[in-house]
Design a protein around this nucleic acid. Structure first.
Length: 856
RNA sequence: GCCUCUGUAGCUCAGUGGAAGAGCAAUUCCGUCCUAAGGAAAUGGCCGGGGGUUCGAAUCCCUCCAGGGGCACCA
């Protein structure tokens, strides 16, 4: 809230944040304190990266948080003597621009770059310490040229390929989606529409080739990445270890392979199930009776009509039909009826499973519904009798174990540990030994082998939209996929002039006749460009490398610069990217490592995830009408107060409820700090050693503790400690040694340098009040004086039988023997021991003496 | 259902074996022409519950309860 001018004149206690912002912004603009391009700079390097924004509208409170926190880290390392690369750019391709363009009949380019101009203005006001000379836009041809280059490298290695498959189709945005972009409830994370399945030919990146490395390398990040993100990535990749088993199918020459994590239960297989939407199901049905063919077709239609959400409901009644065909169990020759049911997924494993109803809940549910046999092959108790045994009172009390019950009658599959039964040579083995043994037996027989499977699927990267990186492939008349020669990159987006951007299921680029029709680069015959564009996550999968030399038009990035700066030392961003973006960037980094372009295999050495800014316990949204606006908050409280509030609100990874925090409180504190600096009357040259010893101790304890606190992201604790320091200094000014004391100046300077992390404008103003030239951002942190960290005396506690009975003021250097002697001499202790016998004495000088006694 | 994180003052959080802490808010007092920006003081706690280990537990172990997050018909 602007303060009236008359008040300004009368009250010199008023800190005018607006004037301070206006004063320093242009000075910083000129001094460029955060430029990193000086080749003569010999300081050690750090690469601190904040996730770059998508430019929609102006900055919001989420941006305010991430950029405030990332800036604390960047400013901190700079003050520790590092040359800090802290760049910013724009993730500027994507659907919102295109949708806005369609709605208003304008060019997505204009919309995007106008937004960027607005956000850039806000970002500069927000005083984030970016090196603006390295700014980039993923939608510039100078950038996407290299995204296309990356595609071609992947294509060369067979890691970018086209396949025909069932894909996620967003009927609102009229485009395909990656699995990662479909929410667990089956809706699109972008449009909110219910995603449907469609069979289409699309481009994929073969990320599954890297599944093991993407999973195993997470171990290197343990401790440096949030446990939550590591957990999410592990779940997402979802490696299962087991075996492939080959089954002969009657009336079919090829065998069918199934994947199982429980090959030990192979003898318990009583039927086989194949996914209805798999090729195998169709083929097996075709080879069956006409009745089966009809039933199958009807069932398939019914399955495909159901949405992902319906299909994923776990408590749903099982459905399926018998295909009239049989498989042969390779270990005992039993005939297994083959069914099709939608609880088996076409795109996991081989789309077929061996059903072991006794030991798998899903198979048991199915078997019970369709009256299929159940064979128990693991004795999860002393005996499986097949009848429900008597439950004793001891079993109910839990003092005696419940017996294993017959799955067919209880409806509960036996998933516990036990000994193998009804399993030929496996009988008597434990589960783990049986798994080992059966894999050996199958391998020898050539009917099976150890195998792994992943939840992770290949990354679908083509999109039927305009505003993205064109896929640099030309399709020959003969169907050949011809990569655009690298010297012809970039394949520029054609102008939107005359193009219909409206979603219609095929790419608008297909309508750009002049652009699409090109001669075949090999023989000059008529050919067509691929009309699809890439998922914007491809753009952002490598942007951290482009920042190293964003204007180089000869290569994507300079490996020598990568050697110097990369990988990113500290990455900062929202947990909403815990899977998608981070997984893709890790994949691309590993690929570039394999190709020899980089020397590291993980792009982000450390990761800080900030939480969300919420209001009254709920996510902010327009529809809820609970928006807090960035510009309003900054105008009302000032940039520094907003930034400080973000840091002070709590641990960065927790959500910030704007209702619970107080930018007003932050502003008060900043004013208090400013007054402290203003009140200092000593000259900069004053000898600090002459200052008040008590205040100096507080100052140096702060200096000693703060670095570890910042490095472990406990920014809120650092701010609380700064508040203590300012309070202590105020006390000395008002009621102690006074404003001229050297310790006051020392405390004020230390506060100012530290405050630069959170409140750069106020810190710069304070630095100026203290008699220095800008920029405080480049001032180095002082080291704590160790001699001031030791207290003159400490309180030792004397306990008798665990209870505190006396306290002694002793020197911190007191020895164990001396301390024990002092304790034994204490009248209070003598009294409380009385006539009891001391049987043990524990001494931990200088903190504690503990007597353990017993009655004589 | 499986995996995972977290429960300490009204709020946000420190404290990882040795006397329960900080900041903010609230309270009272002093100051002020006014003020949502001044100063001071005192208050505030079965450290989620129970059990165990220990001379001693917020801290280590077991168990239960509550909350957050992720995965989930993935064979």
């Amino acid at each position: 809230m602007p303060i009236s001018a008359e008040r300004d004149e009368r009250d010199d206690d008023h800190y005018d944040f607006a004037a301070t912002q206006a004063k320093w912004a242009p000075i910083w603009e000129e001094l460029k304190p955060f430029a990193t391009s000086d080749p003569a700079d010999t300081r050690p390097r750090k690469y601190v990266l904040d996730m770059f924004p998508y430019p929609s509208g102006d900055l919001h409170m989420g941006h305010a948080e991430v950029y405030a926190l990332g800036d604390v880290v960047a400013r901190y390392w700079r003050q520790q003597g590092f040359n800090v690369l802290h760049p910013i750019g724009w993730d500027s391709f994507g659907l919102p621009a295109e949708n806005a363009a369609i709605k208003r009949g304008i060019d997505p380019r204009g919309w995007t770059y106008d937004n960027i101009a607005q956000q850039k203005k806000s970002m500069k006001l927000y005083a984030t310490s970016f090196d603006w000379d390295r700014e980039l836009h993923t939608s510039d041809p100078e950038y996407y040229k290299w995204t296309q280059w990356l595609f071609l490298q992947l294509h060369k290695k067979g890691l970018a390929y086209r396949k025909d498959s069932w894909v996620n189709w967003d009927p609102t945005d009229q485009t395909v989606l990656a699995n990662e972009q479909v929410l667990p409830d089956g809706t699109s994370e972008r449009s909110g529409a219910v995603v449907v399945k469609k069979k289409l030919t699309q481009w994929y990146f073969k990320i599954t080739d890297y599944a093991d490395r993407l999973l195993d390398d997470l171990n290197q990040l343990e401790g440096s990445w949030p446990a939550k993100v590591l957990n999410m990535q592990r779940n997402w990749i979802g490696r299962s270890i087991g075996a492939d088993v080959d089954f002969v199918i009657e009336g079919r020459s090829e065998r069918v392979t199934v994947f199982t994590t429980r090959p030990d239960t192979l003898y318990g297989t009583t039927f086989m199930v194949v996914a209805p939407d798999s090729d195998l199901a169709g083929e097996l049905a075709d080879g069956s009776t006409p009745e089966v063919q009809d039933a199958f077709r009807e069932y398939l239609v019914q399955v495909q009509r159901s949405t992902e959400m319906e299909r994923q409901a776990t408590d749903r009644e099982k459905t399926g039909i018998f295909l009239g065909r049989y498989a042969i169990n390779p270990v005992n020759g039993e005939r297994l009826p083959i069914w099709t049911a939608d609880y088996v997924l076409a795109d996991y494993g081989t789309g077929a499973v061996m059903a072991v109803p006794a030991h798998d809940q899903r198979d048991l549910d199915f078997a019970r519904k369709f009256n299929l046999p159940v064979t128990v092959v693991i004795d999860t108790n002393a005996a499986v009798t097949g009848v429900i045994p008597v439950i004793t009172q001891e079993m109910i009390d839990g003092t005696e174990e419940l017996p294993a019950l017959d799955p067919l009658s209880t409806g509960l599959a036996l998933t516990g540990e036990g000994r193998l039964i009804n399993s030929g040579t496996l009988n008597g083995l434990s589960k783990n030994n049986a798994i080992k043994r059966i894999i050996e037996l199958l391998s020898v027989a050539g009917t099976g082998r150890a195998a792994k499977n992943y939840r992770l699927r290949d990354w679908l990267i083509s999109r039927q939209r305009y505003w993205g990186t064109p896929i640099p492939i030309i399709h020959g008349a003969d169907g050949a996929e011809i990569p655009v020669p690298e010297d012809q990159l970039p394949v520029r987006l054609p102008s939107t002039e005359g193009l219909d951007l409206k979603p219609k299921g095929t790419s608008p680029l297909g309508g750009a006749t002049d652009w699409v029709n090109v001669p075949n680069p090999i023989d000059g015959t008529p050919a067509r460009r691929d009309p699809d564009t890439m998922d914007t996550f491809v753009d952002s999968s490598w942007y951290f490398l482009r920042f190293l030399n964003p204007n180089d038009d000869t290569q994507a990035f300079d490996p020598r610069e990568a050697e110097k700066w990369a990988p990113v030392d500290q990455y900062v961003g929202g947990v909403e990217h815990a899977i998608l973006h981070l997984l893709y960037a890790r994949f691309i980094t590993k690929f570039l490592f394999d190709e020899g372009y980089v020397t590291f295999t993980e792009p982000f050495t450390a990761l800080l995830n900030q939480g969300m800014v919420i209001l009254d316990g709920a996510k902010m949204s327009k529809s809820r009408g609970n928006l807090v606006y960035f510009t309003e908050e900054v105008e009302r409280h000032g940039v520094d107060a907003v930034r400080l509030t973000m840091a002070f609100a709590g641990p960065p990874e927790d959500d910030i409820d704007w209702h619970d925090v107080s930018p007003v409180g932050s502003a008060k504190f900043l004013a208090r700090a400013w007054r402290m600096a203003r009140d200092v009357t000593s000259a900069p040259e004053i000898d600090w050693k002459s200052g008040d010893a008590g205040l100096r101790r507080v100052t140096h304890r702060f200096l000693a503790d703060a670095p570890a606190l910042v490095e472990s992201f406990k920014f809120n604790v650092v701010v609380a400690r700064l508040m203590e320091l300012v309070n202590a200094t105020r006390k000395v000014i008002d009621t102690g040694a006074g404003a001229a004391d050297a310790a006051v100046r020392e405390a004020a300077e230390v506060t100012t340098v530290a405050l630069n992390l959170f409140a750069p404008y106020t810190a710069e103003e304070m630095w100026s009040l203290l008699g220095y030239e800008p920029c405080v951002a480049l001032v180095q942190w002082r080291k704590a004086d160790a001699s001031l960290l030791v207290a003159e005396s400490v309180t030792a506690v004397v306990q008798v039988d665990g209870k505190v009975r006396d306290k002694l003021e002793v020197s911190p250097k007191v020895g164990n023997d001396d301390l024990e002697k002092l304790a034994r001499e204490s009248a209070a202790i003598v009294r409380s021991i009385g006539d009891r016998e001391i049987i043990k004495v524990i001494v931990r000088a200088p903190k504690l003496v503990s007597f353990v006694t017993r009655a004589i």
